[in-house]
Deep mutational scan, measured.
Amino acid sequence: QTVQFNGLEYHFPNPEEAEKFAKKVAKELGGEVRVKDGRWQID
């Protein structure tokens, strides 16, 4: 599972970890999490 933001990609072994990370980062950055092409993106 991949999380993308600021032009970087973070890879996680399972979707739960990816989701948790994506939501944490979005909260800290005040961004929005969305899934695109099977990847988590933070904008």
Score class of each variant (00 low, 15 high):
Q1H: 14
Q1F: 15
Q1T: 14
Q1R: 13
Q1N: 14
T2K: 06
T2F: 10
T2R: 07
T2A: 06
V3N: 00
V3T: 01
Q4Y: 15
Q4P: 02
Q4A: 13
Q4S: 14
Q4L: 15
Q4D: 07
Q4I: 15
Q4T: 14
Q4E: 14
F5I: 11
F5K: 01
F5N: 01
F5D: 01
F5Y: 10
N6A: 10
N6S: 07
N6R: 12
N6P: 00
N6L: 12
N6K: 09
G7S: 05
G7P: 00
L8M: 13
L8E: 09
L8V: 13
L8P: 00
E9Y: 12
E9P: 03
E9C: 15
Y10K: 03
Y10G: 00
Y10L: 07
Y10D: 00
H11R: 10
H11W: 13
H11Y: 12
H11K: 08
F12L: 03
F12C: 14
F12Q: 00
F12G: 00
F12N: 00
F12W: 01
F12D: 00
P13Q: 11
P13A: 11
P13R: 11
P13F: 08
N14T: 14
N14Q: 04
N14D: 08
N14H: 05
P15L: 07
P15G: 08
P15I: 09
P15W: 12
P15H: 09
P15E: 10
P15Y: 13
E16H: 09
E16Q: 10
E16Y: 12
E16M: 10
E17L: 09
E17I: 06
E17G: 04
E17S: 08
E17M: 10
E17P: 00
A18W: 02
A18H: 00
A18E: 00
A18G: 01
A18S: 01
A18K: 01
A18Q: 01
E19S: 06
E19G: 04
E19H: 07
E19N: 04
E19Q: 07
K20S: 10
K20P: 01
K20H: 08
K20G: 06
K20L: 12
F21P: 00
F21R: 00
F21I: 01
F21K: 00
F21C: 13
F21D: 00
F21S: 00
A22C: 13
A22D: 00
K23R: 14
K23V: 08
K23Q: 10
K23Y: 14
K23H: 12
K24D: 07
K24H: 10
K24F: 10
K24W: 13
V25P: 00
V25M: 13
V25Y: 06
V25I: 14
V25W: 13
V25N: 03
V25K: 10
V25R: 06
A26Y: 04
A26K: 03
A26L: 06
K27Y: 11
K27S: 10
K27L: 12
E28R: 12
E28N: 07
E28Q: 10
E28G: 05
L29N: 08
L29F: 13
L29G: 05
L29Q: 07
L29M: 09
L29H: 11
L29I: 13
G30I: 03
G30R: 07
G30S: 06
G30V: 03
G30A: 06
G31P: 01
G31L: 15
G31M: 14
G31T: 09
G31D: 03
G31Y: 13
G31F: 13
E32I: 14
E32F: 14
E32V: 14
V33S: 04
V33H: 03
V33A: 14
V33M: 07
V33D: 02
V33T: 06
R34I: 13
R34K: 11
R34P: 02
R34E: 06
R34C: 15
R34F: 14
V35L: 15
V35G: 04
K36T: 10
K36Q: 11
K36C: 13
K36W: 06
D37C: 15
D37I: 02
D37S: 05
D37W: 02
D37H: 06
D37Q: 05
G38H: 04
G38Q: 04
G38E: 03
G38R: 04
R39D: 04
R39V: 15
R39N: 08
R39A: 09
R39T: 10
W40R: 01
W40V: 03
W40G: 02
W40Y: 07
W40I: 06
Q41M: 14
Q41A: 07
Q41F: 15
I42Q: 02
I42A: 03
I42Y: 03
D43M: 14
D43Q: 11
D43S: 13
D43E: 12
D43T: 14
